[in-house]
Every structure is written in C-alpha cells, then in structure tokens.
C-alpha cells in the first residue's frame, strides 16, 4: 500500500491538475474508507479505516496545494530537497527581502489586497515555469530552485493571513 499520492486517486503524476475532478474523486473515495462506514465494525477495522482515511486526507492536502504538489513531484523523482532558499538563488533572495519589507509596511486593507494580488502573480509565474520543466531530467536543479521559491511564497501567504488577523483587531 505504498502507493504514491497521485496513484491513490487514480491519477498519473503531473503538475497540471483538475482540482474539481480531484475533489470529486476525494469525496467518492472518502465514502469508502471513512471511519463512519465502520462505526459498527470491530476495533481492527476501525483502526484500519482511520489509517486509510488519514492517508487519503494527507494525499489530498498535498495535491491540492501547488507548492506542496511540486515538492512532492520532485520527491517522487528521488530528489531530497533542503527547503531553505540558499545563496544559489541570489535574485530571488533579493526579492524575498523586498517582499518581507513590503509586508511589514502594510497597515490598511487596500494595501493588503494589492500585496495579495502581486503575490498571486508571482506564484502563478513560478508555477507555469515549473510545469514546463519538471519532467526534464537535465533541468532538475532549476526545478528545485522553483520549488524552493514556491515554498517561500506559500509561507509568505500564511504570514499575510496572520497580518489580516491582526488588522482585524
């Protein structure tokens, strides 16, 4: 049962993913393994159901998020990625600093929305590039770099959410 996350949903490993289709499959399959189906069964089947569901929920969580999906695709290809962006990506490091500083300056809602829009554009650009090159073995280090960027942008998006919460106070 060491099926990869894609295989679990009957999909081939790919970066382009129809999220509506994925969600529909997830819901259908959840019906088969959710512990609620086994509320009446013996302890062992209940335990199995919990394990299978947890597995499926984790696979769904990873595949839904583009940054996680990209990272997972590389891991499938045997690439073990250290996740901090390093000096190997100097232009992006600069961009990171700018983005962080910009985030610290934000004090009102229009600024937040503008920042979010910019962030989204950046994410989409990296995603498109990744989609084009990840299967090319010769461009592996480039793919790794893109994944690190996506991870960083993802983390930044979370920080934006925390900022939104503080603004709401």
């Amino acid at each position: 049962m060491s099926e990869c996350h894609f295989g679990l949903f009957g999909l081939k490993p790919a970066f382009e993913l129809d999220l509506t289709e994925l969600s529909a499959r997830y819901r259908e399959m959840a019906k088969a393994v959710h512990p609620d189906r086994f509320a009446d069964a013996d302890a062992r089947e209940q335990r199995l159901a919990i394990e299978r569901s947890a597995n499926m929920n984790e696979a769904y969580r990873v595949l839904k998020n583009p940054a996680q999906r990209a990272l997972y695709l590389l891991r499938l290809q045997g690439c073990d990625l250290a996740l901090e962006a390093t000096v190997q990506d100097p232009s992006f490091l600069m961009q990171q600093m700018h983005l962080r500083e910009a985030l610290e300056e934000i004090t009102d809602w229009p600024a937040v929305n503008a920042f979010k829009a910019e962030l989204k554009q950046l994410q989409q650009a990296q995603e498109q590039e990744f989609s084009a090159i990840w299967q090319d073995a010769a461009r592996m280090s480039e793919a790794e770099r893109l994944v690190r960027r996506l991870q960083f942008l993802d983390k930044l998006a979370r920080e934006v959410r925390q900022l939104e919460e503080r603004l709401d106070d």
């Binding site: 049962m1 009957g10 529909a24 499959r25 259908e28 399959m29 088969a32 393994v33 199995l48 299978r52």
Partner: peptide, 25 residues
Amino acid sequence: LSVATDEFAARRMDASVRAALAGRN
C-alpha cells in the same frame, strides 16, 4: 484471529477504494 485476518481486511479496504474510484471513472 484478528492478526490472521489483518492482511485480508487491508485488501478488502483497498478493493473498496478502487471500486469507488472505478465508479467515478
């Protein structure tokens, strides 16, 4: 008995998951 049927139970669950997926397809 539980231990003897662990593998069987796991196979059944896999089969039902695959069936759900096949139904979707």
